[in-house]
Simulated assay, not measured.
Amino acid sequence: MPDLQPDGFVYASLSQLMALEHRVRGLSFLARQPLSSILSGNHASRLRGRGLSFDELRRYIPGDDLRHLDWRASLRYGKPFVRTFTEERDRPTLILVDQRMSMFFGSQRSFKSVVAAELAALSAWIAFHAGDRVGGLVFDDQGIQHIRPLRSRARVEALCAAVIRSNQKLSATGPDSESEHQLDTVLRSCIATAGHDSLVCIISDFSGVSAQTLQLLRQLSAHNDVIAMQVYDPLALELPQQGRLTVTQGQLQVELEVGQRQVNRPLAAFLSGRLQDVAQMLRRSQVPVMMLSTGEDPLLQVRRELGRLTDRAR
């Protein structure tokens, strides 16, 4: 691990992530009315929610929901019986956090890797205060850390600590990506882990997406509620008209004069095109997308994006 002092902008700290608990009050991935949930998407049915578990079989009482009649028991005993259910008290929330080298970049406020760390903590605290179990998969270019979902502050801290371990291994002189398809590997692992009726938050710049990524997202969202949080840098939307931009790739560093037309135009087209390609792929997956910039406080953006997506779902 490099000799560093986390400043909250290039590198995150555990205390920084844990302190976000007190800033998520009033935030929820689920609206009061299920059809207004950001997770309702294009589906006509209700949100999967936390699910129902069988409670007991008892005699019918006027006012009971007739859809819960147990016809077999009613015919057997000659009197109407109903099955009663209770809502499950929690459900698993899995947070997938990208800490690959592609995330180690930022032109304003914070690096993408730090914004992703903050978003992971915000998502974890929102889920925890909703009564859900929290866990996740933290991945970098070398591997994946698995944190099994539990409902406890200690488990949220364990997830945040895993994020910090990967975050603080990042370095401008670090090696290039060792796994071109790491995102797809993580999604496959999540599909095997999540099962059914989990909430999955994917926090990434989605570098390296492919047709296989699209297929895996659809497979994951077929049985779970999925939110994609696409982290991007403002440079992808608008390059400065003058000045110099230092680009690094492992040991190689190149300084570009962005004021020159032959540099500015192709670089701007490449960055904006890449961002649009990812956004288009995510839209095709029909997974709700929150676009989050490195240039602004993640909490303010999450609050705004939750409102935007909830309005769209109504």
Rank of each mutant, 00 (worst) to 15 (best):
L75M: 13
Q301T: 04
D297Y: 05
I147M: 02
V200A: 06
K112M: 12
S171M: 06
F111C: 00
R188N: 02
G131E: 08
I61E: 13
S53V: 03
S198A: 15
S221Q: 11
G106H: 02
P234G: 09
G295H: 03
A116L: 04
A236I: 00
L282N: 04
D176E: 13
P288Q: 08
S102A: 07
Q253M: 15
Q182M: 10
L237S: 12
L216Y: 11
V138Q: 07
Y77H: 13
V254I: 14
A44V: 02
L94Q: 14
F9V: 09
M291D: 09
A228W: 01
R59V: 04
G250R: 08
Q212R: 12
P6Q: 01
Q276N: 03
R32E: 08
H129A: 07
V247I: 11
R314F: 06
L30V: 11
E157R: 12
G78L: 01
M103E: 05
M281W: 08
L159E: 03
F111E: 01
L239D: 01
Q230L: 13
R283K: 13
A162D: 07
D132E: 11
A162G: 10
V247T: 07
L27M: 10
Q286C: 06
Q142C: 07
L94I: 10
Q251P: 15
M229G: 01
H22F: 04
P149N: 08
Y232W: 09
L214N: 05
L150P: 00
G295D: 06
V289K: 10
L282C: 03
A120V: 07
R284N: 14
P62R: 10
A172K: 02
S123K: 11
R165T: 08
F111P: 00
H129N: 14
R312T: 15
T294H: 02
R89G: 09
D140V: 01
V163S: 05
Y11F: 01
R25P: 10
D184F: 06
Q276H: 07
Q99N: 08
V302G: 00
L66F: 15
W125G: 04
D176I: 14
C201M: 15
L47Y: 00
D297S: 14
S189N: 10
L199G: 11
K112S: 03
Y232I: 11
S166I: 02
M229W: 14
R50F: 05
V97D: 00
D3R: 05
R25Y: 14
G195P: 03
S36K: 03
A161T: 11
I61C: 08
D197G: 15
Q241M: 09
P80T: 11
Q5G: 00
C201F: 15
V258R: 06
E88R: 14
V114M: 07
Q168W: 03
E180L: 09
Y77I: 04
V114E: 04
L14Y: 10
G259T: 10
S113E: 07
